[in-house]
Design a protein around this nucleic acid. Structure first.
Lengths: 147, 147
DNA sequence: ACCGTATTTACAACAAGTGTTGAAAAACAA
DNA sequence: TTGTTTTTCAACACTTGTTGTAAATACGGT
């Protein structure tokens, strides 16, 4: 899981960043969010506690957090960048091709070595696996042939 | 590889689509392109043969081709959708995190089974692996610390 | 060649995200 | 505390990739 708002506050101060009410609000919103929210979604949640916070501020803070390695920013092909507070244990993602829902898949795939010579000279740093399919809810709703 | 322009022409007619000079131009441009071009890149290449072709037409035709399964559209986190004429043999992708270059990695990863019970109820249809790293050229250019 | 319909085109709208700027707030020093 | 400096906030305009609209044009079956 992610650091607490208090720990993040300290981390921001320790790295020379200012701690503002807006940022702390974002810390709280992110805390325990498993839904891989978009910047827009984080903003909506933040507005509920702090009506005047701007979307730009949310973007800035999310970028700061990503830079510090406290959250991951993911482009999973759903049209917007999603943010994942879970950076502690390595995992991959399940993406619903119908509603765009994202879930963590905490499993290691040790056999992900690129066959010798097939890397075309790339210096490969990371591998992300995206499993696409239908989430339980969308399996329901796509049962009806009337869709 | 991809179907020839002639085969695509037939396929378009067979599926009730009209065959226009613009579309055939796009067919030719796509033919043998391994660079995973963006719509913009396809347009640029098409303009070289046909100055007046519009970007919108390129998008439309690429969508048609994707709908027919003749090309794949990929969102690999490079900021734009990339199109891949290679749909015949299953493969994954190497993405340069510096210049955005994309290369096919034709290799099967048979051990990509999700551990029993870890699928969270998803009905998983496909898995895409994106390997991120530096392409040979960008390894060169990032050697200089002056960058 | 004709005509109905799909297609192309220019143009504008759109969405996600970024640069700019005056105003406000934090940090720092005394 | 007060004043001073520096950073950040938030409204706005802008950029980029992509899509919608509507008029003009081209396809292709007759």
């Amino acid at each position: 899981m992610m650091k607490t708002p208090e720990e993040l506050t300290e981390l921001f101060r320790a790295t020379g960043r200012k701690v503002t009410a807006q940022r702390q609000c974002i810390f709280r919103v992110l805390q325990g969010d498993e839904s891989h929210p978009s910047a827009e979604a984080v903003h909506s949640a933040a507005v509920r506690e702090m009506e005047t916070i701007s979307l730009k501020t949310v973007y800035q803070t999310l970028h700061d957090l990503a830079e510090l390695g406290e959250i991951a920013s993911l482009d999973l092909g759903t049209g917007m960048i999603r943010f994942d507070p879970n950076v502690d244990d390595p995992h991959h993602h399940l993406v619903c091709r119908h509603c765009g829902k994202v879930r963590d898949l905490v499993a290691a795939f040790p056999d992900l070595q690129i066959p010798r010579g097939a890397d075309l000279g790339f210096e490969v740093g990371s591998a992300e696996i995206v499993f696409r399919g239908l989430c339980p809810e969308c399996q329901q709703s796509t049962l009806q042939p009337s869709l």
